[in-house]
Write a protein that binds this DNA or RNA. Structure first.
Length: 620
RNA sequence: CGGGAUGUAGCGAAGUUGGCUAUCGCGCCUGGUUUGGGACCAGGAGACCGCAGGUUCGAGUCCUGUCAUCCCGACCA
C-alpha cells in the first residue's frame, strides 16, 4: 500500500477499503458475527479449554458462582471482574444472539457506541453527580492537553448526543436503536460471582419518538420482546411494576427472575397477578382516622433502661412488635419530621418523600434527634414531640400502642392514636410485606426474591432536553424528542439461568442457551470400534448443524459422567460397552434419570427430535 | 464506607502451649495394571506459609502495619 501517494481507484475499491478501515471500530461486533458461525462447529474436549473443578472453591457462596467456576465457565481476575472461558463465552453468545434476534424482530436497529466517553456529557445531564463514585472516570493526557473520560455505565448521554446531531425531523421518527456492549460501574461491593460485577455485558436500547403514542408503541414492543427473550432463554421471570416515571402511568417495569439469592424483593399477588418491586408496591391500605376515645386512661410511663430498639423493648415488656409505634426522625428539605411506623414494619424513604412532597429526605443525625425528642436515639415517640409528624395507615389501627417517651430509658404504654396524639390523616409510608392485602384484588400479597435481569423505562424528555435533542414537526416547530430506554443484563441473565437451573450434580441448561447441545461420550477412547461409531455420530451431528462436544478424554466412564452432569449439556449420547455390541447408542436428557437405547443409525434423528421437543419457545 | 471472616502447592484442607526436613487429599509428570458414576500400584515435580516490618536462640504459629478475597450492612441512573 501507498497511503500517502496518489492512486486512482474505483468506487468499489473505496468501499472495500472503507470496510477494512472500519473494522477496528466495529471489530467486536464483526467478530461476534464470525463467532456465531463457529457456534455451529463441533468440538472435542481435548482440543478446547474446559477446566472443571471437583471441589467448590472456598470463595464461592451462591450456586451460580460455584457452578460457573466448577464447570470452567468463568475465572476471576479480581473482585467484580471475570474472564469468560470458552464454555462460558459460548453461553454469553447464545443469549446475545437470542437478544439480537428479538430486538431486530421488534424493530430495533443495532449500532455500537464507545465505552470511552467524555465527562462533559455527564456534566451536562447532571449524572456525574448522580452517579457519584459509581461512575468510573479518570484524567489523562494527550500532548499537553488534559482529558477527562468516563467509562460508560450506560449510554443515554452518548446516544442522545448522537441523535441530537443526526435526527432533525418528525419524518425520521420513531426509531429504536440498540447495542450489546460492556458497561462499567464502580460498584461499592461487587458480589455473588457474576451476578453483580463492575464490568458486565448489557443490551441497551433507546427509543426516540415525536409523540406519547410512539413512545408507548416502542415501550410495548420492547416489553414484549423482553418476555420473548426470557422465555426463549428458558428463564422464569416476573415483570414487575417499578418506579413510575415523569410521565405517569406504568412508566417502568423491571423483569425479575425469581431466585433465592436475588437481591431484590418482589411483592406479588398469586390471585390477580399484580407484581411490584417491594419498594414501589402499594400496601393496599387506605387513609383512616381513629375516633377520639373519651375518657381513655392516660399512658403509663415504664422504665426501659438501655433498651432503645424495638427488639429490646418488646423483649423487656413481653409485647408484640406490632403493638409498637416506631418513631423515625427524618430531615426533609432541611426540616425535621417524625415518621410513625408500626414496630414490625419498615419505612420506605421514597414513599416518605412523596407523602411530604419533599425533594430530599434522609434519616436525621443524633444531634437533631436529641433536639427534637429531648432524649437520646431510641426513645422517640409522638406524644409531646417537638416537630411535625406523619403516620402510616396502619398506625391508626393500633388500639393501644407502646411508644418512646421522649425521655431517656423510658417508654409509654397504652398510647391511643388520635387521642393521646393528634392524627387526622395517614399515609402509605412503609414497604409492602407478605400478608398485606393486594391493592388490585381481595387476596394477600406474598414476597419473592428476584434477580433484576431487565428494565424498561419511559424516559420522556429528560435527556433530550439537557442535550438538545429536538425534532421539527410539520409546522416547523421544535420539540424535545420523547425517549424510552430498555436494558438487559446479558451476563446477569446467564448467571440467573445457572442460579435457577441446576441440581446436586451441576448445571441443567435450557436447550436454547446451552454452550453445546449434545455431549457425546465414547466410553473407551482406545477402542477402535467405539471410536468409529462415535466419530460417525459426531460427523452426522455436525452435518445436521447441531452443537456437539465430544468428550474424547482418556478417562474412565464415571469421571466423564460426573463432568457431563456438571457442565450440564441438555442431551447426552453415550457409545460403548454392551449397548454398542447390540448396535445401540444410549441417549438421555440431562433432566432424565434413565437413558434410552437407540440403534446407532437412528441416534442423530432421535437427538434432533429431542431438541425440537425441548427447545424453549416464546409464548408471547 | 461501617461490621465480620479468611489468606499455607493449581484446587480443597491440617498444622497443638512458638521447636527438627511444613502435612494430607485431589490435580499434574513417568511407568504399569485398569475401564459403565470422580480407579489402583510404584516413582516424581510442585510452597521463600499473601506482603512488609518487629519480638525471639528459634515464627506458618506471637505483635504491628499493609494488601487481597469472601460474607452482612449502607449504597446501587
Amino acid at each position: 500500500m501507498n497511503p500517502g501517494g496518489v492512486i486512482v481507484v474505483s468506487a468499489e475499491f473505496c468501499v472495500t477499503i472503507r470496510a477494512i478501515l472500519l473494522v477496528s471500530d466495529v471489530e467486536t461486533h464483526t467478530n461476534l458475527v464470525a463467532d456465531l458461525r463457529k457456534l455451529r462447529s463441533p468440538m472435542r474436549w481435548t482440543q478446547t479449554f474446559i477446566p472443571t473443578l471437583k471441589e467448590v472453591p472456598s470463595d464461592a457462596e451462591v450456586p451460580s458462582h460455584q457452578l460457573m467456576l466448577r464447570s470452567g465457565m468463568i475465572r476471576q481476575l479480581m473482585a467484580g471482574a471475570y474472564t469468560y472461558m470458552p464454555l462460558g463465552y459460548r453461553v454469553v453468545r447464545k443469549v446475545t444472539e437470542i437478544v439480537r434476534e428479538e430486538m431486530d424482530r421488534a424493530g430495533g436497529v443495532e449500532l455500537f457506541m464507545p465505552a470511552l466517553q467524555p465527562i462533559e456529557l455527564f456534566e451536562r445531564t447532571g449524572r456525574k453527580e448522580a452517579f457519584g463514585n459509581v461512575l468510573f472516570n479518570f484524567e489523562t493526557k494527550r500532548g499537553d492537553r488534559k482529558l477527562h473520560f468516563a467509562l460508560g455505565p450506560t449510554h443515554e448521554e452518548v446516544i442522545t448526543d448522537l441523535v441530537s446531531r443526526e435526527l432533525k425531523t418528525y419524518k425520521q421518527l420513531p426509531v429504536t436503536l440498540y447495542q450489546i456492549q460492556t458497561k462499567f460501574r464502580n460498584e461499592e461491593r461487587p458480589r455473588f460471582g457474576v451476578l453483580r460485577t463492575s464490568e458486565f455485558l448489557m443490551k441497551d436500547a433507546y427509543s426516540f419518538g415525536s409523540s406519547l403514542e410512539q413512545l408507548n408503541d416502542a415501550y410495548d414492543a420492547m416489553y414484549n420482546a423482553y418476555c420473548r427473550i426470557f422465555e426463549r432463554c428458558g428463564l422464569e421471570y416476573i415483570p414487575v411494576e417499578a418506579e413510575s416515571g415523569p410521565i405517569g402511568g406504568d412508566a417502568s417495569h423491571e423483569f425479575m427472575a425469581p431466585a433465592d439469592n436475588g437481591e431484590d424483593f418482589v411483592v406479588r399477588c398469586k390471585s390477580c397477578g399484580y407484581a411490584a418491586n417491594q419498594e414501589r408496591a402499594d400496601t393496599g391500605r387506605t387513609s383512616s382516622t381513629p375516633a377520639k376515645v373519651d375518657g381513655a386512661a392516660e399512658p403509663q410511663k415504664v422504665a426501659t433502661p438501655d433498651a432503645g430498639s424495638i427488639d429490646d423493648v418488646s423483649r423487656m415488656l413481653k409485647a408484640d412488635a406490632a403493638t409498637f409505634i416506631k418513631t423515625l426522625i427524618y430531615v426533609a428539605d432541611g426540616k425535621p419530621v417524625a415518621v410513625l411506623i408500626r414496630g414490625d414494619h419498615e419505612a420506605n424513604e421514597g414513599k416518605v418523600r412523596r407523602a411530604l412532597d419533599a425533594t430530599s429526605v434522609e434519616l436525621a443525625d443524633e444531634a437533631t434527634i436529641e433536639k427534637v425528642t429531648g432524649a437520646p436515639v431510641g426513645f422517640a415517640g409522638p406524644v409531646g414531640i417537638k416537630c411535625a409528624y406523619i403516620a402510616d395507615h396502619d398506625i391508626a389501627q393500633i388500639a393501644s400502642a407502646i411508644t418512646g417517651a421522649n425521655e431517656k430509658d423510658a417508654h409509654l404504654t397504652g398510647v391511643v392514636p388520635g387521642t393521646h396524639f393528634e392524627l387526622s390523616e395517614t399515609f402509605d409510608l412503609r414497604n409492602a410485606d407478605a400478608g398485606d392485602p393486594c391493592p388490585k384484588c381481595d387476596a394477600t400479597l406474598e414476597i419473592v426474591h428476584g434477580i433484576e435481569v431487565g428494565h424498561v423505562f419511559k424516559l420522556g424528555t429528560k435527556y433530550s432536553e439537557s442535550l438538545d435533542a429536538n425534532y421539527l414537526d410539520s409546522e416547523d416547530k421544535k420539540h424535545p424528542i420523547i425517549m424510552g430506554c430498555y436494558g438487559i443484563g446479558v451476563t446477569r441473565v446467564v448467571a440467573a439461568i445457572v442460579e435457577t437451573c441446576h441440581d446436586e450434580g451441576g448445571i441443567v441448561w435450557p436447550m436454547s442457551v446451552a454452550p453445546y447441545t449434545v455431549e457425546l461420550i465414547p466410553l473407551n477412547v482406545t477402542d477402535e470400534e467405539v471410536m468409529a461409531a462415535v466419530n460417525k455420530i459426531y460427523d452426522e451431528l455436525k452435518e445436521a448443524g447441531i452443537d456437539v462436544l465430544m468428550d474424547d478424554r482418556d478417562q474412565r466412564p464415571g469421571f466423564k459422567f460426573k463432568d457431563a452432569d456438571l457442565i450440564g449439556l441438555p442431551v447426552r449420547v453415550v457409545v460403548g460397552g454392551k449397548g454398542l455390541k447390540e448396535g445401540n447408542a444410549e441417549i438421555k436428557l440431562r433432566t432424565d434419570s434413565e437413558a434410552t437405547m437407540v440403534p446407532i443409525g437412528d441416534a442423530v434423528a432421535h437427538v434432533k427430535n429431542l431438541i425440537n421437543t425441548n427447545m424453549p419457545s416464546a409464548r408471547s
